[in-house]
Design a protein around this nucleic acid. Structure first.
Lengths: 212, 212
DNA sequence: GTCTATATGCTGATAGAC
DNA sequence: GTCTATCAGCATATAGAC
């Protein structure tokens, strides 16, 4: 029942994910892909007859499915969503910084770049994001939010996360990810009818650190 | 004192901005640049001896300076920031949709793509974003926020805006931009000590529209 | 399924006439 | 400052031996 540890096809997918999250789709060449996967070019076209686009699409789907699992993984430890959300953003910030500011989300990186120039890939990215929204909404509902509030929150959270990734990576500062996490916690508060007194996240807690 | 309506150099900058906001940096070729600017290739290297990178850098600086001016332009009409912020996001959504889902921010598009592969351009993008933060913070201070709160808000707002651009453009739906705007309004509330009662933006107002 | 050799076109960039 | 001709190299993709 145990398969090979890593098939050639899987290595292509991993290589594509890693290269695309750093450079995007256009800048990632087939040659780089084969070098990173340790396989010759003919092998790529054997497993993915439609070439680079097909590898990218498959990599987006695979890594997208993995990514959404992080949501419960990071947030389950916290009883209160107002704590869980900033904690998830902080975890993303830590991972990004630890990776030397490269580990952005491959889906976000590619989606921003190809939405108007690679229709097939844009559709795949849209599918992945839609599935994130559905699964994430279901998770928030399980945590007690109404479907409408859950969906609203999740969409705003994904938006803030992807944008904060861009800012944090470009500025090489964790501040945007932290600020985005606090903003989303406030949104949860406002929609669940809780006031802002008391547990208000401290603004400016880490905004003193300048980038340049 | 009146200069030419449009110098060759300016046409290169405009072409670079428009092409990069749609396709990103890597996918934009020098040939496309010259075709869009209506000038031969030698002309590009006359004005920008360092080539494609230099055009892109100059285009990011120029368009970045224009972009931040939209902040007061869109928000001045509203007395209350809690109304001004969602209105600004709604305006961005309308522009994006009207352009056939292409008109994303060129700085965000490029920054996401090159942060780990084009060090020189990443630095330029970081400069532009830093200047946005400084100018935007100053604007919010003028509107009555404390410097710390203003800065926190602006960083979160930029993050949410860039990320919501990506989601909206990919999904071809204005929902993410609207949801992000509401989240930021909630953040303003929470930081200025106002509760969430009464003026809470209605969650789910437009989240019913599905993309696929 | 793996791998090499190769085809065709486009890439960013340069030289130099005008 | 404008424009053409051209370079060397890399792009994606294919054919076909093993």
């Amino acid at each position: 029942m145990a398969e090979n540890v890593s098939t050639t096809r899987d290595r292509f997918l991993t290589a594509a994910t890693e290269l695309m999250r750093r450079q995007g789709y256009a800048a990632t060449s087939v040659k780089q892909l084969t070098a990173a996967a340790g396989a010759p070019i003919g092998s790529l076209y054997h497993h993915f007859p439609e070439g680079k686009q097909q590898v990218a699409a498959a990599a987006l789907r695979t890594s997208g499915a993995v990514y959404i699992q992080l949501l419960p993984l990071l947030m389950d430890p916290y009883d209160d969503l107002r704590e869980a959300i900033p904690a998830a953003f902080a975890a993303a910030a830590e991972d990004l910084e630890r990776s030397g500011w490269m580990n952005m989300c491959p889906v976000g990186t590619v989606a921003g770049e190809i939405a108007d120039s690679e229709p097939a890939l844009r559709e795949v990215a849209a599918e992945v994001i839609t599935s994130w929204i559905d699964q994430g909404t279901a998770y928030f509902v399980r945590r007690g939010l109404s479907p409408e509030v859950a969906r609203e929150l999740l969409i705003a959270m994904l938006s803030a996360l992807e944008g904060a990734f861009i800012l944090s990576r470009t500025l090489r500062s964790a501040t945007p990810l932290h600020a985005a996490g606090r903003a989303l916690a406030a949104h949860v508060d406002s929609m669940t009818g809780r006031g802002s007194a008391g547990k208000t996240p401290e603004p400016g807690a880490d905004v003193g650190e300048r980038t340049r």
